[in-house]
């Protein structure tokens, strides 16, 4: 069919710049690092092929940090991804309610934590989490609850960092907000005619219509959570006792503090495979719950 061919040609042409760009600027360096992961490369030497040595030393326990950082990162991901989705979706939904006045101001305010530079916000967190004088512990004390050591205890450091990161959810909220603008009002109006209440509207219109965006935020949230880095660098340097030695921080340390670029590449590619698998699973399941209007 001429029609189909025309579309295919257009499709390729439209996608070509991005395909070209991604291949050149991202995939090519990625492949280079894949090759480097099979070499002994310490920046200052010529890379030397050593087979799977860099991978073996991770799995056979020669590297004392590998399993620990995997575990720490999984803990973070499992907490952060669902919480992030729920909190930001609710925030966006509330911010979008019709009766709210001063929407612009509210939206801007909710986006602020994502704008303020880390040097300033990290100071606030140090204060909020401070075991002695911090706001959180004063609050717990007032409720007669036991206080916590937050960032400074092995048990609570990961949840504390999750709380911190939830605060900077502005971007995800904005994406949800943009999505909510695309839910046709006519659907709600029809539902009201049918006598649907707020909860039913939310469950049967808002959620299904938003699934493509929820799916996007799920995928990007997971990819991002697996690569969590900045918080560990600024707030904890991986401590206490490696309890926040996130996988990506560990890669960075191996690459730029120890200069072991070959090893770092191997570590990174294992993360790549993990993220790839997780994403693939999400895509598989998406067929059952993500609803694209264009595919109907």
């Amino acid at each position: 069919m001429l029609h189909k061919r025309r579309i295919a040609v257009a499709g390729i042409l439209f996608a070509l710049p991005s395909i070209f760009g991604i291949m050149l600027f991202v995939i090519l360096p990625m492949l280079t690092s894949l090759l480097l992961s099979f070499t002994d490369y310490r920046i200052v030497n010529t890379p030397k092929f050593i087979g799977f040595t860099n991978y073996k030393r991770l799995f056979d326990g020669t590297d004392p940090y590998f399993y620990n950082s995997l575990w720490v990162t999984f803990k973070y991901v499992i907490l952060r991804v669902p919480l992030g989705l729920i909190v930001s979706f609710i925030a966006a939904f509330l911010l979008n309610m019709e009766f709210i006045r001063g929407k612009s101001v509210f939206r801007t305010i909710f986006y602020l934590p994502a704008i303020v530079p880390a040097v300033a916000s990290s100071m606030i967190w140090i204060w909020l989490f401070s075991p002695d004088l911090g706001l959180f512990n004063s609050f717990l004390e007032a409720l007669n609850l036991p206080t916590l050591n937050w960032l400074y205890s092995e048990n609570t450091v990961v949840p504390s960092i999750v709380i911190m990161s939830l605060w900077g959810m502005g971007s995800t909220i904005i994406i949800f907000l943009a999505g909510l603008q695309g839910v046709p009002r006519s659907l709600y109006e029809a539902a009201i005619v049918d006598g649907a209440g707020a909860v039913r509207k939310f469950r049967h219109i808002t959620i299904p219509m938003m699934t493509p965006i929820i799916f996007f935020n799920l995928i990007m949230g997971s990819i991002g959570a697996f690569q969590v880095f900045t918080e560990a660098l600024i707030m904890t340097q991986g401590g206490p006792n490696n309890a926040s030695l996130f996988y990506n921080y560990y890669i960075y340390r191996q690459a730029f503090q120890f200069g072991e670029m070959g090893q770092a590449s191997a570590i990174a590619w294992i993360l790549f495979i993990i993220i790839l698998i997780v994403t693939a699973i999400f895509f598989r399941t998406s067929k059952t719950w993500v609803f694209y209007e264009s595919e109907v």
């Binding site: 991604i22 991202v26 995939i27 090519l28 360096p29 990625m30 280079t32 690092s33 480097l36 992961s37 920046i43 995928i219 990007m220 990819i223 690569q227 880095f229 990506n248 890669i251 960075y252 690459a255 730029f256 670029m261 770092a264 590449s265 990174a268 590619w269 993360l271 790549f272 993220i275 790839l276 994403t279």
Partner: peptide
Amino acid sequence: LASMMLPGAVTLIP
């Protein structure tokens, strides 16, 4: 999508 899955620390130098 895969292009977002490898930490930037190891592609910086290439």
